[in-house]
Amino acid sequence: MKRLQVNTTQNVIINFELANLGQRILAFFIDNIIKFAYIYFIIYMFNFTLIKAAVDGDSWSIKAIDILLFLPITFYSLYTEMLLNGQTLGKKMLKLRVINIDGFKPSFTDYTMRWFLRVVDFNLFMLIFVYVSSLGANEYLGLLWLIFLGGKMVGLFSIIMTKNNQRIGDISANTVVVNLKDEAKFSQTILEDISEEYVPTYPSVIKLSDNDARIIKDTFSVAKKSKDYKTLIKLRTKIEEVTEVKSKDKTDIIFIDTILKDYNFYTQNM
């Protein structure tokens, strides 16, 4: 099993297990089942005859409605990965996640680049296939199908051949897909779920190191789970001492959670 070793700016080594080809194909298959289920729902649950009648045969209006109804399919991987923190529904079922190759959450640009380059990874030569098919060139049909299937396999070949199991979109966006099945190991990293709109509270958290953040997270998780309030108080006091900040939050739990999120915000955006 391939692994990604991330050496952070504070020389803390984090190991991630990379998703293999089989896992990614299965996640891709599940996502496509969801897409086809949506298409089935749209076709069989909506009365398109009534819609066409309603727009009085206006071809442009009909095309606009078609585009609108199928937008969720077109942008499926983009909005699901952004909303589900690097996971499509297929990846979520298989416990896979997209992360930045440096171990952090990908940016909006990273997600967009991965989505856009699906054209190369899975749909290369699609326009050639459609164009030649429309011409009715039956003598080239066999070759045409080979070209079409070859274009569909670009992403798979890239995952097999690259060191970190990356398709073209991953390489361009500087991302990898990791396996989260070992929840304990993954939770030991300093990763936190923060939104694009997150506003930090304590700028002085940059005084912490990656190792400090990891220790804080581990201690915090155990103390919160066991309701060890004495340890939480000690942890808050130590954080205030190192960062030279005073808690603005109502409870120690909210304060420490904010500290971890702020640290992730600044280290991801520096």
Rank of each mutant, 00 (worst) to 15 (best):
T162H: 05
E183Q: 12
D218S: 09
L232E: 11
K207R: 14
W60V: 14
A27W: 08
Q268R: 12
G136E: 04
D58L: 07
N32S: 10
D252G: 11
V6S: 10
I171V: 09
D31C: 08
F116K: 12
D182L: 04
E196P: 01
L235M: 01
N47H: 02
I253R: 06
L146I: 14
V242L: 15
F75N: 02
M126C: 04
D31I: 07
G150N: 01
A213V: 07
G103Y: 06
E192I: 11
M270C: 08
F70M: 13
R118S: 14
A223F: 05
A54C: 07
Y263A: 08
A184E: 09
N20W: 09
G151Y: 11
D210H: 06
V245L: 09
K185P: 01
Y111F: 06
T189M: 01
R118D: 13
V242T: 15
R118V: 08
E192C: 13
L135A: 04
L21A: 14
E244R: 10
M1I: 00
D228I: 08
F125L: 13
A213W: 03
L141R: 13
V132L: 08
S209I: 09
K225C: 06
F186A: 04
L141Y: 10
G22W: 07
V178L: 05
L50I: 03
G151A: 14
Q166S: 14
E196H: 05
Y44E: 13
E241A: 09
T219L: 12
F108L: 15
R167Q: 09
V222N: 08
I25G: 10
M82E: 01
L141N: 10
R114V: 02
N47S: 05
D262A: 03
D58M: 06
V242H: 13
F70W: 04
G150W: 03
F157T: 03
F46W: 03
V245R: 03
Q188N: 14
L127W: 12
T251N: 08
N15I: 04
M93Y: 03
D228R: 08
L124S: 14
I51Y: 07
M270F: 13
Y44D: 12
I67H: 05
D31W: 03
V178Y: 01
N11F: 09
K207I: 10
L208H: 05
F129P: 06
M113K: 15
V176A: 00
K35T: 13
M161A: 13
I101T: 08
A37H: 05
I51E: 04
T74K: 12
I215E: 05
K227Y: 11
